[in-house]
Structures are given as structure tokens and as C-alpha cells.
Amino acid sequence: MPFPVIDISNIDDPQHQLTIAQQITDACKQWGFLLIKGHPIPPSDIQEMFSLAKDFFSLLDNEKDPWPINKNQIGYMGSFRDKNNDDKMSMWFGGLPGALENNSEALPPFWHTKTQRIEAFKHECHALVLKLLVCFAIAMDLPDNDFFAKAHRENIGRGNSLRMLMYPARDKKPKDVGSRMGQHTDSGSVTLLFQQAAGLEVLAPSGEWVKAPCERDCILINLGDALSFWSGNQLKATLHRVTFDGLPHDKERQSMAYFGAANPDTVLQPLLSGVTMGKYYSNGLCVEPGITVGELNKQIMTSIYGPAVAV
């Protein structure tokens, strides 16, 4: 089964929207992942973010380490700092619009003059997430095309998070570490992954691990457990990882992930009529109907990163 690659350039055209919605939804039912092309985010904006991230990750540790991730999910995390002891660096930009400027003390000084550009890029990502959520509602024949989208308002709750990632190149493979990124599913609704090189591995419908493709001007999309559970497990949240086999210790890789999540007080009741849904597990945790998005996110983030970043 080939990895799904879908052109969404006509996603706003009423004559093409249903077809695109069905293609996206079918991919998410089978894979939980897809590659989209023809998306509305300008390549120059994406490249600007990658360039800023590259400059930041090249700074000395003492210019990054004193600003660890806080409960607003703003700050820096170096390699081997998460619970899995993974070899990746990450810079997190969480919060509602305006949160970065209002919490500048949580940011390394490098970012103090760049918060408006980060906020603008987050806004572009959020707009794309909403378009995809509308597609799911259309393809699932829900009575309201905005059923999912209206629960993802940008200025409500705790906001969405942009995470810049760097997998550093090293002369030798570190000893007594986990992997590059341990296998997991995301906690939210829709993740946009921008890549400069391949390296992410996805658990395919066949049950085999495959390397997700990296193509120019494309965005890798995957779903999180909140949306998967909410859909009654019709939409799939898929395990993914980065290993030292897939990305050797002497190879560098940059990526950026935008995590689109529903407002924290959104109650997750599976969308099934007359069908009993089996137990749903997220990163080893059993999810029960009636849990809120905020509660689910806190459980998953605690299990992966520890209580310091759980909100």
C-alpha cells in the first residue's frame, strides 16, 4: 500500500472539496499519516523558520539551557533531557497568540526580537489545521462542516504549540541513551510536520515500520489520539519514531512540528451510533469516554516528558 500523497491546492473550491476531503480522510483511516502538496503556507516562510532554528541550535549550551520548558510549553529542552533519554534538541513555542511576547522571560534572548514572526507562522499553521478538520467533518458526513474546527479556536484555552527540532550529528553514538525519538502517538488533533530530510519512521497498515517520505514543498500530516478517540477510532493515530538505524548518529536532521489541539475543556465522546467502541489506548494509557482534551494531554505529556511540561 503506497504512502498517501495528496494535492490539496483546490481544498477551498466547492467543486473539489468533497473529493479532497474523502482522499484525506481515507488516508487517515488507513495510515493516520499523509503527505500534502499544494498547501497554502509559503515555502519562504517555512525556510525562514528552519534558518532561525538552525542559528539557534548552533548557539552554546549556556545560551539555551537556562530557559527550560515551562508549563506554558515555552522554552528549550536539550538532548537526553526527556524521560526516554532521546538524542534530540527542541525549542517549544506554546501558548495563545501573544503569549510569546508576554512571556519573553521564558525565551532564550535569541528569540526576543523574533516572536512576531513565530506568532505569524503559528497562525498560518493553525489556518491549515482548520481546513483539514473541515475535510474530516465533510467526509464523515457530519451535520456541521465546522464540527471539529469550531472546537479548535486559536484564541481559546492554552493555544497550540510549534516545536523546532534538531537531531544533532555526532562523531560517536552516545552510550546509554534511548533513541533519536521514542515511538509514540501524538496527543492532540492534527500535527503538521515540516522536514528538511527523511528520518521519521511510521508504523504502516501492514504492521511494518516504514520511513515516511520527505518531498520538497510538502508537509507531512498525522493525527493525534484526541481526534482519533473522538472519531470513534474511525480516524487513526499512528505510532511513529526516529531511530539510530534510520537516522545514524553522524547525520543531522531538522524538522518542525505544529501541534493543533482542541480547546482543553472539549469533552471527548466517541462519534459512534449504536456501536460499542473497544478500549482505546494512548501511549499505554487507557482513554475513557468523557475525558477532556486537557486531561488527556496532561496524561500523555506527563508519560513522555514528565510533569514539568504537563499543563
Results as ranks from 00 to 15, higher is better:
I8P: 05
V190G: 01
H16A: 14
Q299N: 13
D171K: 13
L239S: 07
D12S: 03
F121S: 03
A99E: 10
G199H: 13
H112I: 03
V134W: 14
K37G: 09
S187C: 15
R158S: 13
Q195K: 07
F244C: 10
H112S: 03
T115P: 05
F57H: 11
L193E: 02
S58F: 05
Q254D: 03
V267R: 15
I304R: 15
A237S: 15
G224V: 15
L239I: 01
D217W: 08
T238Q: 08
L296T: 01
D61W: 00
V242Q: 04
V311Q: 10
N103S: 04
E48G: 12
K279A: 05
L162R: 10
N283F: 13
A99I: 03
I219D: 02
F229N: 06
G157V: 09
V309E: 06
E48T: 13
G98V: 01
S90Q: 15
I118W: 03
Q269D: 06
Y76P: 02
E252N: 13
A226L: 00
M1I: 00
M89S: 11
R81I: 01
I74P: 15
S231H: 09
E154W: 02
S189M: 01
I8H: 06
P4G: 09
A257K: 07
M49N: 08
N297V: 05
L52W: 09
A53P: 02
G232T: 15
E201C: 04
V242H: 03
K71H: 14
A151N: 10
A262D: 00
G284Y: 15
D245K: 15
H123C: 07
A226K: 00
C28A: 05
S231K: 11
T243K: 11
Q196C: 14
N62F: 12
D55A: 12
E201V: 04
A149E: 10
M301H: 01
W230G: 02
D26Y: 00
R241C: 14
L142D: 02
H123G: 04
V242I: 14
A169F: 01
K71F: 06
P43K: 06
F80A: 10
P168I: 02
A151F: 07
A127H: 06
G246H: 13
G207D: 02
L239W: 10
W209G: 05
P143W: 07
P43H: 08
A53V: 02
V177A: 07
A262Q: 05
Q47L: 13
V242F: 09
V177M: 07
T113G: 05
L142Q: 04
C28D: 02
L128E: 12
A204E: 03
N283D: 12
R158A: 09
G182A: 12
Q73H: 11
G207R: 02
P109H: 10
Q116D: 07
G157M: 04
R163V: 11
Q30G: 12
D82S: 10
R117A: 14
P264S: 11
A149R: 08
L162G: 08
